[in-house]
């Protein structure tokens, strides 16, 4: 990926203009601050409450990443098992499909009963929402192998393990990464929703607090922080993908250039 100066300058200028417009319009139309505060207020809220924001962001980050890590480990394991075991396909898979059809975040109140008020019930929800994209993508990646490649393996007497390690697993990497990106963003959402339901820390909790005191500026700052958090995670995965599965990035770049 190469950025020219223009590629950076253009969006930057656009955002500055947008902020100025926002500031000016709020002033002119006299919108009350609790409905839409000017950007200046957002900045003030951010600086004033930096430490609190940082503390709660860390909590949400831990919940999201914890849930994601769990979903990755269990999701990949589950995907491999389903691909290789007809029994699992016939028994657990339908169960998973039913679970998939449920709104996962609606489990949040139940999780409080089952796991408690603390960190782990949030991790559980983050895990639940992140689990499916990982499983679905990994299963597709493991299965979408050119049949000729499998013929080639058979002719050369490749072991089942070889077919897995040298063909199926690397083949699934670009798919897995696609799943990971979705899963990460969802796990942040999952953690926030879980905090909405019952929590005494985390950015979701803080948004509710800001709402109660009509501190719209703080709520908006938190949303921006959440966007930043998701973006950072997303970019970290992107870098990892370039390292581990450069061919997927190449393929995408080719498509992207049209």
């Amino acid at each position: 990926m190469k950025f020219s100066l223009k590629d950076i300058a253009e969006p930057l200028i656009f955002f500055v203009i947008l902020l100025l417009l926002w500031e000016v319009l709020v002033e002119i139309i006299k919108i009350p601050a609790f409905i839409l505060p000017p950007p200046r207020d957002l900045y003030v809220a951010f600086v004033d409450k930096f430490y609190i924001l940082y503390k709660h962001a860390l909590v949400t980050f831990m919940e999201a990443v914890g849930g994601f890590a769990l979903s990755f480990v269990l999701g990949v394991t589950f995907a491999v098992s389903v691909v290789y075991s007809r029994h699992l396909q016939n028994t657990i898979y339908p169960l998973i499909v039913i679970l998939y059809a449920m709104p996962k975040s609606a489990f949040a109140p139940l999780m409080v009963i089952w796991i408690g008020y603390g960190l782990f019930s949030k991790i559980a929800i983050a895990f639940l929402v992140a689990f499916f994209p990982i499983v679905v993508n990994t299963v597709v990646g493991l299965k979408e192998v050119e049949p000729e490649l499998l013929d080639l393996a058979r002719i050369n007497r490749a072991s089942e393990l070889d077919v897995f390690a040298k063909i199926r697993l690397p083949n699934s990497l670009p798919y897995m990464f696609a799943g990971i990106k979705v899963a990460l963003v969802l796990s942040v959402t999952g953690a926030i929703v879980a905090e909405f339901v019952a929590a005494n820390e985390g950015l979701g909790y803080l948004i509710l607090q800001a709402n109660y005191s009509l501190d719209t500026a703080l709520a908006l700052v938190i949303l921006l922080i959440l966007a930043l958090l998701s973006l950072l995670l997303f970019m970290a995965v992107e870098i990892l993908q370039k390292k581990m599965a450069p061919w997927s990035a190449e393929v995408r770049q080719l498509e992207g250039s049209f």
Partner: peptide, 9 residues
């Protein structure tokens, strides 16, 4: 085969 079926990685 008709297509090269190479491992991309």
């Amino acid at each position: 085969f008709q297509s090269p079926v190479l491992l991309k990685w």
